[in-house]
Design a protein around this nucleic acid. Sequence first.
DNA 1: CTTCAAACCTGTGGGC
DNA 2: TGCCCACAGGTTTGAA
Length: 286
Amino acid sequence: MPELPEVEVVRLGLQAHVAGREIAKVEVLHDRAIRRHTLGADDFTGRLAGARILAARRRGKYLWLELSDGEAVLAHLGMSGQMLVQPEGTPDEKHLRVRVRFAGDGPELRFVDQRTFGGLALADLVEVDGASLPSTIAHIARDPMDPAFDPKAAVRALRSRRTEVKRALLDQTLVSGVGNIYADESLWRSKLHWARPTDKLTNAQGAKLIAAATDVMNEALLAGGTSFDALYVNVNGQSGYFDRSLDAYGQEGLPCGRCGTPIRRDPFMNRSSFSCPRCQPRPRGL
DNA sequence: CTTCAAACCTGTGGGC
DNA sequence: TGCCCACAGGTTTGAA
């Protein structure tokens, strides 16, 4: 379940159910799920056997299980990944990719992923700008829920790009955690059109946008995340209900909550952008 | 170096 | 009912 609030819901579940446990055995049922672990499945499972999980951590949409040996199991859920905590003996899910059994009693951890855009990998933990991160995601920017997140630096980063504002907002090396849903929600809240060129974005508009992104993701987290179907669930298989609070994303044809104008949908990067034609007017010349 | 489209997958829903 | 196309919450890749 893709964007930051949904990943944070999963992290909280992993911290509650998996932190402190010792891995007994790992099974890789689909090699593509560990394609980013370049040493292969045998290396992956061999090195994990006997490791103890200290904590579940996250930056942006990436999460990782910190191990006692200075390594981490890095996970990305891609478009359809799930981390499920299931009692042993529960029938395998159709798209079960990796199973983690633990020492002693208690449920197992399952990585389930229909589209296999997500995956797991082992990585060394390294120090980057005062933070401990898996080496392979050292380039990912801090997210708005990070205590050390710097909104002004984020605005500078967005404005330094020569592109459309939504493209910049989705660039995980500038600000992390924002995906298509929360980008549209943030733009609606700050009354900005998605195609506004970043060099026409004022500091005030940028600050408003970052603040809106922070707010909307915090609100979504409190609601347990956003999900339209059973594909996006917490470790117990439950869905959040922030979809009821969406103002723009997926609202094509429905009246804007501010002005009543029907929300429109535009094609955007092989997907969609939803916006209010009146509150978020197209920049001149486009 | 930056920016962008295409590729990577499986499944669902709408139109015919 | 079946077929085909459009579309889905993300990242990486390679080309320009």
